[in-house]
Design a binder for these strands. Structure first.
Length: 793
RNA sequence: GGGCCCGUGGUCUAGUGGAAUGACGUUUCCUUGACGUGGAAGAGGUCGCCAGUUCGAAUCUGGUCGGGCCCACCA
């Protein structure tokens, strides 16, 4: 390395990435007796390419994990991918231009497996490029045998504990994906709708007008309700109304669900138009539900002339028919918020189907109480968890009428319909290919397989069990009972209601123990205007571009700048700040190494200025350590950044140059070299979690022979050294800085160079001890000590 | 409608009771001894608004306006 040496981040990153892998620097050491620190890493959904949001949040995780590793914890930082279920199916459909509904299941599953194998290596590599210190020696996939085994064991355990049940009832249904979905899979969408007022005849010659947004369900109408206190309709309660066109006669009943003020106060009920229909039907068991909608969203036989039409088509036609019949008396525009399936944006319907559910409603209080025992960072994120639970209206529907997912370990007896659960020893099981180990209780040996697959969340909610070897198949070499729970769950805030919640549910149900001690919630990356980044909006930035232009360390430096849990805008200029920090490190260490090449660390009597900077270093170590302990990586970053750039480079290095360059051996020079060495090494360590590449390069260049650790990243985290604390030197040093900056200001305001000599400097008596330093730094020919601060050129 | 978060120089941001932090931008100056992707100095803020608590409020309380997110939504 010489002064013309430029830092080429691409070469450096590649070199150390390969080194870390070869030397197994991040591989979990099961023989270590240190305290284990297990990270329940989020398995990213395989989606072709990493996006900037990933780079952002995974970097933040990696930073805190690297701190723990250096601190001496025995870190297990696994890596897996989520690559089954609806998101994967959607991806494969898009990449291969196919529709799963138009293929055989077998064919489609094979295509999924093949496609995933094609794209996964590059996908995982993106995580390595940003410098993730995961143990990549073994990665899991949520559809591999180990995970299927774990997921199926989870199901069986819940089944035995009667925490999972099968039910045939109205459930939320996506007519596009043609599967049941869970409450957590919903998203809100505002739409312009019309409230249609329809006048219908009532027996005895009177009439009633109801208002509806869903004309298409007319053929399924089973009742009209009015508020019991509504004076307008009191005399109609109990009578029958005739729905036009269909000529169905329905009762007019009293129900306080009908609001007197909304619409006309009269509601027509066509189960299932929305969730209220369910509640209504349960309240009125005497009414028989008419199922009019098929799984594909088309109206069926019971829809009469509207049979075969989609909801949208039927809506138009019914309105036309009503208009023609003269019963559509009014239409008013209505802003309506509807629930849509988050994966495809399709408005959900309610269909009566048979599904598997995990009980959650019965234990809301327990989940909330237990949630309080987890350390949430930032703390307020716990409220999102609690509010979600409070708002839950459904048990957790885990069955999906899809193809590529973990199969239920379930058969049905062809004779008596008994549910047969697989034996735990035969997992993983595919009921379509395998058979139960024993006959049915009724003696029959013929079975029908459960064809549904599990929702991805049903599997990703057991990541702690997956990584800690609950199924004891030794894919991961752990004693589950000793290792569970994990130390940390890092994740983003949008999946608190799903991943965090479901994982807690499973942990409590299976082990009656929370899955982790800490949960750290990260934010999202936004575009420069503060909008969410979406490929479809065209404002998405690819990490590959950023890595190519600025390097991983600069990207990480940027990601470390957001406050814990906060969203962060992507402003390109902030990447160059990171890049400049890398350059500054490179240059300052480049300077220092000329003087440290043959230096051996030895104890010396320290100069006051050296004690001053070591005090600052100590404070910085303390601030960084405390910040990292509570996952406040951005505070740690700010502290080390200021220490390095302002205190160390701008001040300290300038203060000691004259001693460093002085000829021959001297106490003063030795003191400066000791301090230089100590500061530099600790700066590297403090920056190591944030910028692993440049720091490793400098460590290997300058310190490797002297410090012995094969990698900076498994060297020890700096410890606050009481012996270096010296309040008196700190005070004098601060005064010294004050005088120096006074002199700099005077020179600057006169347009003079900082090297301009001074004829005379008047300064405080307390600095008399620093006469040599002052003369060297200010270029003063003569210094007079007193109470004044004054200069003469 | 309910809840949570936020509102600090042109932009972004630190700061939960005691003289307003840093970055970017901007202006002036400084290049023989690591770095001009640098250094020094300067300009620029009624800390959204109003009221209250306090000796003292960016910080606490109440209200208000504005932005973001989550949840619920009326047939």
């Amino acid at each position: 390395m010489n002064s013309n040496n430029k830092y080429v981040f691409k070469d450096v990153e590649k070199k150390w990435r390969e080194f870390w892998e070869k030397e197994k620097v991040y591989v979990f050491n099961k023989k270590s007796k240190a305290k284990p620190y297990v990270v329940d890493t989020p398995p990213p959904t395989v989606s072709g390419k990493m996006h900037l949001g990933h780079a952002f949040s995974y970097t933040q995780q990696d930073i805190v994990v690297r701190y723990h590793r250096m601190k001496g914890d025995n870190v297990f930082f696994p890596f897996g991918t989520d690559d089954n279920g609806l998101p994967t199916e959607k991806l494969v459909e898009k990449l291969k231009n196919v529709r799963s509904t138009k293929m055989s299941r077998h064919e489609f599953v094979e295509l999924c497996e093949k496609t995933i194998e094609e794209i996964k290596p590059d996908f995982i590599n993106d995580w390595k490029l940003v410098g993730m210190s995961c143990d990549f020696s073994k990665t899991y996939s949520t559809i591999d045998e180990h995970c299927i085994r774990t997921s199926q064991k989870s199901f069986i355990d819940l089944f035995k504990k009667k925490l999972v049940y099968q039910s045939e009832d109205a459930t939320m249904w996506c007519v596009h994906c043609q599967t049941a979905i869970a409450q957590a899979d919903l998203e809100d969408k505002e739409r312009e709708s019309k409230l249609n007022y329809v006048k219908v005849e009532v027996e005895g010659g009177s009439n009633i007008t109801f208002a509806t947004t869903r004309p298409e369900l007319m053929m399924a109408c089973i009742a009209i309700s009015v508020h019991p206190e509504d004076k307008r309709y009191k005399n109609l309660i109990g009578k029958k109304a005739t729905i036009p066109i269909s000529n169905i006669q329905v009762p007019i009943i009293a129900d306080d669900f009908s609001k007197i003020e909304f619409g006309t106060g009269a509601v027509y009920w066509c189960p299932y138009g929305d969730i209220h229909d369910l509640q209504f039907v349960r309240k009125h068991p005497e009414l028989e539900v008419i199922h009019i909608l098929d799984k594909d969203g088309k109206l069926n036989d019971k829809a009469g002339k509207y049979k075969g039409m989609s909801v949208k088509e039927a809506r138009e036609l019914v309105l036309e028919d009503w208009k023609e019949a003269g019963v559509l008396v009014k239409q008013e525009p209505l802003k309506q918020v509807v629930n849509v399936h988050e994966r495809c944006g399709t408005e959900i319907e309610f269909l009566s189907t048979k599904q598997w559910f995990i009980k959650v409603l019965d234990n809301k209080k327990k989940f909330i109480d237990e949630g309080k025992k987890i350390n949430w960072y930032p703390q307020f994120m716990r409220l999102r968890y609690e509010h979600w639970i409070q708002g839950l209206q459904w048990d957790w529907c885990i069955s999906r009428q899809r193809h590529f997912g973990v199969p239920f370990p379930v058969w049905y007896c062809k004779n008596c319909s008994e549910v047969i659960i697989a034996d735990e020893k035969q997992l993983p099981v595919d009921p379509l290919n395998d058979k139960p180990k024993t006959k049915c209780k009724c003696g029959n040996n013929e079975f029908e397989a459960e064809k549904d697959v599990m929702d991805t969340w049903a599997t990703s909610s057991v990541t702690p069990q997956i990584i800690l070897n609950w199924v004891k198949d030794n894919v991961y070499d752990f004693d589950f009972d000793k290792m569970y729970p994990c130390s940390l769950r890092p994740q983003a805030h949008d999946i608190i209601r799903t991943w965090a919640f479901y994982t807690i549910v499973k942990g409590l149900y299976h082990h009656n123990k929370l899955p982790w001690k800490d949960i750290v919630i990260s934010g999202h990356v936004l575009d420069p205007k503060g909008q969410a980044m979406h490929k479809s909006k065209g404002n998405a930035i690819e990490p590959a571009e950023v890595l190519d232009k600025y390097g991983a360390d600069a990207l990480r430096f940027w990601a470390a700048g957001s406050k814990l849990g906060d969203d962060l805008r992507y402003l390109e200029k902030e990447l160059s700040t990171g890049q400049r920090t890398v350059t500054k490190l490179w240059n300052s260490f480049n300077f220092a190494r000329q003087h440290l090449d043959n230096y051996k660390l030895k104890k010396v009597e320290l100069e006051i200025i050296d004690k001053w900077i070591l005090n600052k270093l100590n404070n910085t170590i303390q601030i960084c350590t405390q910040a990292f302990e509570v996952y406040e990586y951005s505070k740690a970053k700010a502290a080390i950044d200021i220490f390095f750039w302002k205190d160390f480079c701008d001040n300290y290095l300038e203060f000691v140059k004259y001693r460093i360059y002085s000829e021959g051996k001297s106490k003063e020079r030795d003191s400066s070299l000791f301090t230089l060495y100590t500061c530099l090494l600790n700066i590297l360590k403090l920056f190591a979690p944030i910028m692993p590449y440049i720091t490793e390069q400098l460590y290997q260049d300058i310190f490797k022979d002297k410090e012995k650790d094969k990698s900076l990243h498994i060297s020890t985290w700096p410890i606050f050294d009481k012996n270096l604390v010296d309040k008196k030197s700190e005070k004098i040093g601060n005064e010294f800085v004050e005088v120096v900056s006074f002199v700099r200001k005077e020179k600057s305001s006169k347009g003079k160079s900082l090297k301009e000599p001074l004829k005379l400097l008047n300064c405080y008596t307390s600095l008399k001890l620093l006469d040599k330093d002052l003369k060297a730094v200010t270029q003063a020919k003569e210094i007079k000590y007193g109470k004044e601060l004054k200069i003469e050129f």
